[in-house]
Amino acid sequence: MMTLKVNGRDHQIDAEPDTPLLYVLRDDLKLNAAKYGCGLGQCGSCTVIVDGKAVLSCVTPMVLLEGKQVTTLEGLGTASAPAPIQRAFMEEQAAQCGYCIAGMMMRAQALLQRNPKPIDEQIRAELAPHLCRCGTHMRILRAVHRAARLMDTAELSAVDKRSAP
C-alpha cells in the first residue's frame, strides 16, 4: 500500500512499484482524461503534471511518486467550470478526435505555470513530444495563447476583487 496524492486528495493504492502511474489513474481511480497511446513515452497522450512538471504517466512507475503531487486534467476544472486552459481549447475548437488533447492541455498548463507569456516557438518546442493525427496543430497553438490571456485576465480580476472596497 502506498499513498498517492492526486488532485489534492490522498489515495491508498495497492500496486506494484513498477506499475505505471497511468494504469493506477485509469483503472484504480477512474480518472480517464489521461489516455493510453503508445505505452512507450513517445506520443504524449498520457501526460499529467507531477510537482509542476509535465510527466509521461505511461512510463512513470509508482516507485517514483512517493510524496509527490499528481495533477490530472480532472484536477484543473470541470465541464461546468472549465479551467482557463480547457476553456481556451474549447473556444478555439482545438480538438478533432480529441485523443491527444488532454495530454496537450496538461503540458501547456505546465508551460504556462512557469512561463505565463510563451511565444510561438516556445509553445512549439514544448509541445513537440505530443503527436496529433488529426492536424489541429494551428488551433492548438492559438488555444495556448488564448489560455495565457485568460489566465492573465483571471489574475487581474482576482486582484481587482481583492482591492475592491
Binding site: 512507450l40 513515452g41 513517445q42 507531477v50 512538471k53 509535465a54 510527466v55 509521461l56 512510463v59 517514483l64
Partner: peptide, 14 residues
C-alpha cells in the same frame, strides 16, 4: 532509437 527521458519524473537525488 527512442527512450523516454526522466528529467520530469526523477529528482536529482533519484
Amino acid at each position: 532509437p527512442i527512450m523516454p527521458g526522466f528529467a520530469a519524473s526523477m529528482n536529482d537525488a533519484e
